[in-house]
């Protein structure tokens, strides 16, 4: 039997039909929607390279069955910038050199966007490190990653304060 779902990916509505209900969101993105920015690191939910946002929450796309996402709003690394303008977290990763080989970077950035939105860690470096510990970086660019998230969190908080003032 086949399954058809309709979801939004980076603002575009996509209708997808599956013959097999076991297709993960990660494989859907990489193999069928031509969005290879989301990486496959371990394919079992332990390295974080495949992190994307579903309805604003960060999830491991390799552990999420695509058929469960009918009506969902998915954001991947390709959908974060507004045209040429980088998202504050992206800009901050460039500024703080929060990577070496770059393979975990899309997952780190999506995780950071999710973490900041969760609003629990504020600008406490210790809690940021803990909150980012599900995203492994084998190059161990953790100093730059922490600084980047911290800086982005500060900037985004300031922006929010300014807007509400």
């Amino acid at each position: 039997m086949s399954y058809t779902i309709s979801l939004t990916v980076n603002g575009d509505r996509r209708d997808v039909t599956f013959e097999d209900a076991r297709v993960t969101l990660l494989d859907l993105l990489r193999e069928r929607l031509a969005l290879p920015g989301t990486k496959k690191g371990c394919d079992r939910g332990q390295c974080g390279a495949c992190t994307v946002l579903v309805d604003g929450r960060r999830i491991n796309s390799c552990l999420t069955l695509a058929v469960t996402l009918d009506g969902a709003d998915v954001t991947t690394i390709e959908g974060l910038a507004r045209g040429d303008v980088l998202h504050p977290v992206q800009a901050s990763f460039v500024e703080h050199d929060g990577f070496q080989c770059g393979y975990c970077t899309p997952g780190q950035i999506m995780s950071a966007v999710g973490l900041i939105a969760e609003g629990d860690v504020g600008t406490d470096p210790e809690r940021i490190r803990e909150g980012m510990s599900g995203n492994l970086c084998r190059c161990a660019a953790y100093h730059g990653i922490t600084e980047a998230v911290l800086d982005a969190a500060r900037r985004m908080t300031d922006d929010k304060t300014r807007k509400s003032a």
Partner: peptide, 22 residues
């Protein structure tokens, strides 16, 4: 100076072997 492909890395545009369109 930062890594040469910094902007590509943060936008998901940096291609690795598994990302090359086949």
């Amino acid at each position: 100076l930062p890594h040469d492909a910094a902007r590509l890395h943060v936008t998901g545009a940096a291609r690795y072997v598994d990302d090359i369109p086949t």
